[in-house]
Nucleic acid binder design. Structure first.
Lengths: 121, 121
DNA sequence: CTTCATGCAAAGTATTTGCACTCGG
DNA sequence: CCGAGTGCAAATACTTTGCATGAAG
């Protein structure tokens, strides 16, 4: 099953680069102007393909909705428990992948949770 | 809105201690024997309350289903991309919370992704 | 041409909510 | 007693799937 390069796939990818940790729905909304005829399922399918190819990263947070990130550098995230805002953090301390005979590691995710300044008021 | 101590809440908490990163559905299934009349919504509601109280931790992984963990020590997790198995890892390198005037941090989560030995065959 | 990709709508999952009833304090 | 908690079913939110059509190579 070889993969083709389609206009929709690249459109989805470009949307990712213009948005900050968008959900699939946000990508879909954004594309209403760029490619009005695109279907929601196509967005989901292409986000999955791009993520499988390692061009983007799929993120998981407490709001139960998947977010996507075109920045594939191993940075960290801060998530506000209150407004659910996501803030990129540089990967200050690099964690080395754990060694074990039970598995091999190829990726890591580091998230910090708390409350952002606006929500502390 | 003061909180009451109910039989169901403690039953859910005890289920968590007997299960390994269960989903809400798994807790519910487990409780069919201990408390057959418990409702699915009560399980969800109590998992939310317990997690809010810090007695358990809610975990987010690529399978889109929330998992819960009665082990609130800051340990790490390994998740197999293939079978979605979750393995506890000791927090070998402790990450310090980042300092910023934009937010305050009170919790962190560290996940490693890869393929477990069984799935490498 | 061949077959992967798309768009739509319908179907699945996981979780939340409305409501009358129950029970803890 | 009074209101938070419960159990049920219905509703919601997010994502996936089936299928006929379209387009990439």
């Amino acid at each position: 099953m070889q993969r083709r390069s389609t206009k929709q796939r690249e459109t989805v990818y470009h949307a990712l680069m213009h948005l900050y940790h968008p959900t699939a729905e946000e990508v879909y909304e954004y594309l209403r102007s760029e490619a009005p005829s695109i279907g929601r399922a196509t967005v989901f399918r292409n986000l999955a393909v791009l993520s499988e190819e390692g061009r983007i990263v799929k993120l998981f947070f407490p709001d139960e909705v998947a977010h996507y990130d075109a920045n594939t550098d191993g940075h960290y995230h801060f998530i506000c428990r209150h407004c659910e805002k996501i803030i990129d953090l540089p990967a200050t301390q690099k964690l080395s992948f754990p060694k074990s005979d039970r598995f091999t590691v190829d990726e890591q995710s580091v998230n910090f949770y708390g409350v952002c300044r606006e929500c502390q008021k």
